[in-house]
Nucleic acid binder design. Structure first.
Lengths: 128, 128
DNA sequence: ATTATACTTCAATCGTGATTGAAGTATTTC
DNA sequence: GAAATACTTCAATCACGATTGAAGTATAAT
């Protein structure tokens, strides 16, 4: 029985991130925040989306640690949102590692007729 | 009004991929296929999942172009699945580009009190 | 204090997609 | 040709999450 290629926890973390980002509006919001700090109303105007929806999506992004929030020092009614750089770096590194083409391996199925075919890799084992 | 940072189509494509992969079982299946060719039954045994579910997830992965399918030449009842290398490369490149930390930019909100504060970038424009 | 603004939270509805179980298909073996 | 195997497709249920609308909160202006 082959060992599990990626640790379960890593996979769960990756799925959590993917779930958060696999939503058009949310990905757009994230993308807009890559352009720099923005407030709810700016995002809403650009995406033609109601403020409560923006707020909701931002909270999801925030819970995932992908986005930071900061209240205005002068007028506390305003809230500014930005991408969390550390999270972005972690995200990028994890994605890059997981989906790196070099991780792909050669392997024959262990069941079906193919499993009995000899490959260049296994043929030497037979003669031992 | 700022220009849209990423073209809508690109974003949709990315979301489509993310949706497909943002599912624990599916990501596990994809991860297992990174180890090499496998058939339905092998995957099912490793994940303790019914064959029809495996089949369903594989068809989703296949529709997204991420996974290829091949019938056994000797015994056509057996079907082998593998990761599509070109798709993996495209995926990796797109993710890498989108989530690259270097894409992050400095920007001040255009509304709220912050918008009236002068920055080093904008202060020279004022004197023109 | 009262009102207005900017945003957040809550409750309810709606839709998409995961899961389940059963029927269907393709292929090989007897 | 009939039975068996490996897998696929279909129909139905279930659950999670997006959306909506309304109430709630925090802050500032009057």
């Amino acid at each position: 029985m082959p060992t599990q290629p990626v640790v379960f926890d890593q996979l769960q973390t990756l799925v959590a991130w993917l779930k958060v980002l696999a939503e058009p509006r949310r990905l757009q919001i994230f993308d807009l925040l890559m352009q720099g700090v923005q407030c709810n109303c700016e995002l809403g105007e650009q995406l033609q989306l109601a403020p409560n929806l923006i707020s909701h999506h931002l909270s999801v992004l925030r819970q995932a640690g992908l986005v930071d929030m900061e209240r205005d020092q002068v007028d506390g009614r305003w809230v500014y949102y930005s991408v969390n750089l550390a999270a972005l770096q972690a995200l990028n590194a994890t994605f890059g590692a997981f989906f790196h083409p070099a991780r792909m391996q050669q392997r024959q199925p262990t069941c079906g007729p193919q499993s009995t075919l000899l490959t260049l890799d296994t043929i030497e084992e037979v003669f031992e």
